[in-house]
């Protein structure tokens, strides 16, 4: 007797278009709670398009089935998806001048939890999480991503991941632009989220994040298709051999 494997996120036959150009050509993915999937691939393989389209970015058209906790969410707007427990950590988080990190986080937390969070409770939680990520408390008073360094922006994305506690998160190149210390902090945040049962898809170009985060599965995306899925060793193989051999195999297939 085997228990059915719990599933937090599943997509089937996902196609993504930018205008009339198809950039993702039929992707299937099933993620269990606390599971980390890495999607690797060369530049232009459709990794970021896949992540952004799943969240509902208006620049993309998505077709296919998308389920969160067994519910079809493909017809939901981005804010509805977020409130249903989905999260996207951005590759390039946008600056919103005049809006403080704290006021924004409190508004987001209120939205996803569906209730007002008392100020003291909010502050306590915020400061605990910021400490975990080695962030200066003064950070909370700064304007959202305004004048932030690359590392600060990525830390803020992870802070949001830990505060908003989604069921499923897409992390788009969260490792890019980080020095080794920041990379370790970000990796620790991702591991903490996994321990809290967040299912995650890490979109990444390099192996280096995977030195600190142990994925359960590695998928290789080439020209909009998953051409191989395998154990973490696959990531090391890619690091050693590059993507070309897979592209060639894929071309032959």
């Amino acid at each position: 007797m085997t228990q059915p494997r719990p599933v937090v996120f599943a997509c089937r036959c996902v196609h993504v278009w930018v205008g009339d150009r198809e950039v993702v050509k039929g992707v299937d993915l099933v993620v269990a709670p606390g599971e980390i999937h890495a999607i690797m691939g060369p530049n232009g393989s459709g990794k970021s398009s896949f992540a952004n389209a799943l969240m509902g970015h208006p620049a993309y058209t998505l077709e296919g089935q998308v389920e969160l906790n067994g519910e079809d969410v493909s017809g939901l707007s981005p804010d509805e998806k977020a409130r249903a427990g989905m999260f996207l950590a951005f590759q390039y988080p946008v600056a919103i001048p005049g809006v403080s990190v704290a006021s924004f986080l409190r508004a987001a937390l209120t939205a996803v939890r569906g209730r007002e969070i008392p100020v003291r409770e909010f502050r306590r939680e915020l400061h605990a999480r910021m400490e975990e990520l080695e962030m200066d408390p003064a950070f909370a008073g700064r304007h959202l991503n305004d004048g932030f360094s690359g590392g600060e922006k990525k830390r803020l994305e992870i802070l949001q991941l830990l505060m908003l506690r989604p069921r499923f998160a897409l992390l788009d190149e969260t490792d890019s632009g980080l020095d080794i210390d920041a990379l370790k902090v970000v990796a620790a945040g991702i591991n903490a989220a996994a321990r809290e049962d967040v299912g995650m898809v890490l979109v990444t170009h390099y192996q280096r994040l995977l030195d600190h985060v142990q994925p359960h599965v590695v998928h290789v995306l080439v020209e909009g298709r998953i051409v191989r899925s395998g154990k973490p060793e696959l990531a090391r193989e890619l690091e050693a051999r590059g993507y070309d051999w897979l592209s060639r195999e894929n071309g032959r297939a």
Partner: peptide
């Protein structure tokens, strides 16, 4: 549009 999407993706209506 990017600012709006960022906030929407955090659950704000």
């Amino acid at each position: 549009a990017e600012q709006l999407f960022y906030l929407l993706s955090r659950g704000l209506p």
